[in-house]
């Protein structure tokens, strides 16, 4: 893990057990709900810190290694904190043929991070997704749920500068 990521993990919030238990409670301790519980934890805490994984493991009676395996297998689950704004760039085929690799290159160069990383100031996280299903807008990025379509690399800076 890079020093940058370690630093970010120290400053990010660590949820307490009560918050985790509230999620567990809605599934009634059902082991087969592990993925659903992790998804809910992800959307509540924006990442899955160690103590969340430990608590889930204890409460469900699933080995920590298995919980970790699941959390690291799926793309929607993140083991590192995410920034204030989440940029999702569509890398689906339709966007690819319409030039998304050039948009990705421009964002990576502008923010000085690679896809999957968070900027040092916690302002942006950048995530690649495989299809957002709004192919008519390609190439498209979605920042905090807001879609920006038919992009050219030259427009990227102006759009990102709108998010503080």
């Amino acid at each position: 893990m890079s020093p940058k990521t370690t630093k970010i993990m120290q400053i990010a919030n660590q949820p307490d057990d009560g918050e985790i238990d509230r999620i567990l409670y809605t599934y009634g301790g059902d082991k087969s709900s592990l993925i659903q519980i992790l998804l809910d934890a992800q959307s509540t805490f924006h990442w899955l810190p160690q103590n969340v994984l430990r608590r889930i493991s204890e409460q469900l009676g699933i080995a920590l290694s298995e919980v970790y395996r699941t959390a690291s297998f799926y793309k929607a689950l993140s083991l590192v904190p995410r920034g204030r704004h989440l940029i999702r760039i569509c890398m689906g085929t339709a966007c690819h043929v319409r030039g998304s690799p050039r948009i990705l290159g421009k964002i990576e160069q502008f923010l000085n991070i690679r896809a999957g990383e968070t900027t040092r100031d916690m302002r942006f996280s950048l995530e690649r997704v495989n299809c957002l299903g709004c192919c008519a807008l390609g190439p498209v990025i979605v920042v905090d749920g807001e879609a920006h379509g038919n992009l050219t690399p030259a427009e990227v800076e102006g759009i990102l500068n709108r998010y503080e």
Binding site: I35, L39, Y74, L77
Partner: peptide, 8 residues
Amino acid sequence: VHRGAGAF
């Protein structure tokens, strides 16, 4: 309903 967590 079961939500998938992003794995092709």
